[in-house]
Amino acid sequence: MAARHILVAGAGIGGLTAALALARAGFDVTIVERAQALEEAGAGVQLAANATRCLKTLGVYERVAANAVFPEAFEVMDGRCGIRLTGAPMGAQAEARFGGPFLVIHRADLHSALLAAVRETPAIALKLGHAVEGFEAEGDGVAVRCGERLHADALIGADGLRSAVRLQLHPEAKPSFRHRAAWRATVPAGALPARLAGPITRLWLGPGAHLVSYPVKGGEAVNLVAVTPDEREVHGWNLEGAPGELLAHYSGWSADALALIGAPERWLRWALFDLDPMPAWGTGAVTLLGDAAHAMPPFLAQGAAQAIEDAVVLADLLKSTAAIDSATIPAALRHYEALRLPRTARVQKAARGMDRIYHLAGPARLARDLVMRARPGDAVLERYRWIYDWTP
């Protein structure tokens, strides 16, 4: 009997991971991607223990780790005066605490590692320049229109925030503008003072804005993400940002924070959108995965991690259907959704909550900082044990 066939829409981190997981579960997989060429946008990605455990189960962890950095510490800084508010050791201590490594990596390096694994997997076919135009039930499966008509036993919409699959399933589920912009840049580590380029992840907090810095490219570069208020809803990853405009949001910040913001010659800006938690994802032989299902603000660094979790759970639940009647697939998809919806909704809500906490001003900001300075550093990580402890 021929292997069951799953069609995955989208060749981003979620789609590639899903394809790898499904192939390991015994399926033939076709990935359809609207882009004519794969050029993964973005800058850095943080992968906590919940994500790296998944990568190990998929057999791609070593490939990803080869270009990653394993931070030795995490620090929360007062952006204005430059003092350390709190922090925690990372590295071996965090791995022992949560049962898995924490790493940071350039998004292009993560995407390239997953793509290389996909291209080495005979059960996976990748079709570029194939945008999903629509789909309908056909027999026990689904027919997908994407420049050609393809039949599959199931369709997985991993096609991002502006998912065509989600649009047909849930036309009312529109991306929600967060009234903020994220500015990203990567600078050579040698262009920064040594104290700002070491193996430490730092979060700089200030009224209305924040800044994140951590090493990538094996420590040869530093990834920067600056988040500011913004009312421009133009969507895109590669919009040029004016450095002078960005700097105006950080007037009065500490010398170290300003040294980071002033280092890049070029900043790219994108408007931040997310999704409200959805009561359901799919129907029949169709479901959603990653940002298509639960796009979230980047304030807990869990967007990629939750997509990776989705992929492992989805493949595990579909595995038992790979060699039997495809009529059982919809039930497995509903089981996947029942397991993932509560967790991803909780992460989405927690990430939105951090937006408010990070950007407090006035007396509320001072109270937050006092609480942070009074708590043990490990409390920063222990607060999110419910995220990091997750095991596939």
Rank of each mutant, 00 (worst) to 15 (best):
P207D: 04
H294M: 00
D256Q: 11
R107M: 09
T344A: 14
A68D: 10
D291R: 02
R195C: 13
V8H: 03
H335I: 08
L16D: 08
L16F: 06
E95I: 04
D291G: 04
P229A: 04
A259W: 02
D109V: 08
L128A: 08
F102W: 15
W267C: 02
E62C: 12
G252N: 04
L317R: 11
E337D: 12
E240H: 07
M90G: 03
H294W: 01
A221T: 07
P298N: 01
P193E: 02
A164S: 10
L47Y: 05
T344E: 02
A41E: 11
E231T: 15
V60W: 09
R107D: 12
A88D: 12
A226P: 09
L370T: 12
S254F: 02
V313W: 06
L114W: 05
D276Y: 05
P277V: 09
Y358L: 06
G79R: 01
K174T: 14
A94R: 00
G12D: 06
T228Q: 03
L47H: 07
C81N: 14
W281N: 04
W267M: 07
L239G: 06
A367C: 14
A37L: 13
P175H: 09
E240S: 09
L288N: 03
Q168P: 04
A23Q: 04
L103M: 15
H235Q: 15
R195Y: 05
Y336G: 14
V227G: 07
A11V: 07
A19F: 03
K174C: 11
Q168A: 07
M77V: 03
P297A: 12
S213I: 01
W267F: 10
D159H: 00
L300H: 09
L7M: 00
A248L: 10
R340C: 06
L258E: 05
L314E: 07
F177Q: 10
G99M: 10
